[in-house]
Write a protein that binds this DNA or RNA. Sequence first.
DNA 1: TATATGAATGAGTCTGGCTG
DNA 2: CAGCCAGACTCATTCATATA
Length: 203
Amino acid sequence: MNPPVFAHGNLRLYLLALLEEQPRHGYELIQALSDRFGGTYSPSAGTIYPRLAKLEEEGLVTKRTDGRKSVYEITDAGRAELESRRHELDAIEDDMTDSIRRLAEGVRAEVDSAMRTLRAELASAAREARKAATTEPATPQPTAESTRAMHEADLAITEFRQQIRLELRNQANRGRVNADTVSLLRTRLADVRAEVLQELAQG
DNA sequence: TATATGAATGAGTCTGGCTG
DNA sequence: CAGCCAGACTCATTCATATA
C-alpha cells in the first residue's frame, strides 16, 4: 500500500478547514481535495464519508439534506476546534505544498526525459532511413517496415503531446499557466521541431 | 504490546438524467 | 422505455499509527 497522504488525524482537520470555507457535500469535498493536490490525490468516497459521519457525531459539523445530497456545514464547535489547532493546519498545508512541488518536479523531469528520448528516436530513425536509401534502390511504395515505423513515430508524437497536455492541465489547475508559459512552450517546441526536421531533411 | 483510532481502497447500491 | 452512465453514498476490509 502507498504511504498515507495525510498523517494521523490530519484528514479530519483538513476536512474541517474545507468546510470552514463553505458548506459542501461529500463529493464536492473529494473534488476539492483532488483540486488542492492537482489531481494527484483523490480520496475515495469510503475515506471521506466515514470521516464526515464521525465529525457529525462529535458535533463539529452538521448535515442537512438538499435533495439527494447531504450538505455538511461546520459548527461553532468545529470552528473552535479548528482555531485551537490552527498551527497544525498550517503544517499540513506546508506538507501539501511540498508534496505537490515534488510531484511537479517529477513530471517536469519525465517530460524532459521523454523529449530527449523522442529526439534520439527520431534521429536514429532518420539515420536508418538515410542508410537504407543509400543501400537500396529508391521505390515509390512504402515498405511494411517504413509503414510500421511511421505508425510508431505517430504513437511517440501522440504520447509526447499527451504528457505536455497533462502537465499543462496540472499547472492550469493551480493557476500557473499564463502568456509566459505559452511563449516558453512555443519557443521550446519550435526548437525541437526545427531540430527534428533538419535531421529528417538530411535523409 | 495490545487495543483503539484513523486513512485508504474498492465493490456495490441507489437514483436520476440522457439516449437510441 | 430499456439500457447506460454519472453522481452520491454505504459497507467491508486492510493497514498504519497513536496511545494506554
